[in-house]
Amino acid sequence: MNENRFQKRTLFLILYIVFALLPIYWMVNMSFKTNEEILSSFSFFPQHFTWDNYKTIFTDPAWYDGYINSLIIVAINMAISITVALPAAYAFSRYSFIGDKHLFFWLLTNRMTPPAVFLLPFFQLYSTLGLMDTHLAVALAHLVFNVPLAVWILEGFMSGIPREIDETAYIDGYSFPRFFLTIFLPLIKAGVGVTAFFCFMFSWVELLLARTLTSVDAKPIVATMTRTVSASGMDWATLAAAGVLTIVPGAIVIWFVRHYIAKGFAMGRV
């Protein structure tokens, strides 16, 4: 019975992974083909295998700068999001204060703004501040959806930690900052890891705001892609190669935080 169940789960998992990987495989497949081959025939493997698409990206500064800019933007955004969200999440999970429930929900409402029409106000705001085409502008704009998310996820993890731990630490004479950094933070490592990953992800793939707020110097890779797509028809092959390369940094990030996600066990043990 148990064995049987295990097999069913494994089968389901394998099926899902196949489903998840097929479109990605198709993209990898396309990235090694020429445009003519992509559009002319159906094939499981590239018939005229080529590295040219990747060469284009690694030799043209307009392309590889996009990746660097994206990484800078995402790093700034992640740092700010997690720094401001940690104390707030702690406050929400440990204390009652006037308007806490409303504030908690209000935070999330900021994720609900449809981006299309908010582009112009953003443009005006950052022009006025002289931040246009800087990494900081995009990183700040992305706070709209990442800070509420970070607070929500961290609060969830913090509420899983018994409050007795805090009280014991205070009785032992720990100050709040010392308690928070040396005792509490290690306990919610898993939460911080998951939060970092989600901040990375949402900021990495966001297109509309990033494209509006940058022109040359801080243009992230997602925006670079759209420009190449519209130039003289569709450059499918280069786009596919660029797409493959956009997965790489994220895959590295999740590889680093995988333990935090998988070792959530530590949270309830103490």
Binding site: L13, Y16, I17, A20, L21, L22, P23, I24, W26, M27, M30, I38, F197, M201, W204, V205, L207, I221, V222, M225, T226, V229, M234, W236, L239, A240, A242, G243, T246, I247, P249, G250, A251, I254, W255, R258, I261, A262
Partner: peptide, 23 residues
């Protein structure tokens, strides 16, 4: 499995559309 499952989340949204267009 974690990494494989997360892959699709990391693709920029416009690329997702483009890939499925061909796919």
């Amino acid at each position: 499995v974690l990494v494989v499952v997360a892959l699709s989340l990391l693709i920029p949204w416009n690329v997702v559309g483009t890939i499925w267009q061909i796919f």
